[in-house]
């Protein structure tokens, strides 16, 4: 019935969570998403079942944080569009080619690729996080990868 000190959880999984956050919300918001993910995880940590899969748990929290963040941003964008009476411009910082390519996938494809290929979660876990069946999660990831294959050479040329 023993849980490691939370510091060790951050040390072991911090890099993966940062990769996943960068993939699903983009480089500009990844740092906020990372901190919010670990704060939410810290809040829930004492009640987490012993022996739970920490990486899957953290990716699920990161996913929820990202969904919240995107919802907040689209609300803000809607408000600023009304105020300025024109569409808000895109983020000014040019993201890395991988992040730029990911941003052009559908959210579902992007999530499936991030959770399976960057966090190494099996499709059964991915499906639990993004909804649908494991087979559908596999398909979303495969479609995402196929699209990335077409996008990334363009981005780099």
């Amino acid at each position: 019935m023993t849980k490691p000190p939370f510091e060790l959880v951050v040390a072991h999984h911090g890099a993966t969570v940062l990769r996943v956050c960068t993939a699903i919300v983009g480089s500009n918001d990844a740092e906020d998403a990372w901190s919010e993910t670990f704060l939410a995880a810290l809040r829930a940590y004492p009640t987490l079942a012993d022996g739970a899969n920490l990486e899957a748990w953290l990716v699920r929290i990161a996913h929820n944080q990202a969904v919240d963040l995107i919802r907040r941003q689209s609300r803000q964008r809607a408000v600023s569009e009304v105020l300025a009476n024109q569409p808000a411009s895109d983020p000014p910082t040019p993201p890395s080619s991988a992040a730029a390519a990911l941003a052009r996938l559908s959210p579902r494809q992007r999530q499936a690729v991030a959770y399976h290929h960057l966090a190494d979660l099996p499709y059964a876990e991915v499906a639990q996080i993004i909804g649908g069946t494991p087979a559908a999660a596999r398909r979303a990831a495969a479609d995402g990868i196929a699209r990335l294959r077409r996008l990334i050479p363009e981005e780099e040329s």
Partner: peptide
């Protein structure tokens, strides 16, 4: 094929 660079 698909990786994301780490940023230590």
């Amino acid at each position: 094929f698909f990786t994301m660079p780490d940023n230590p």
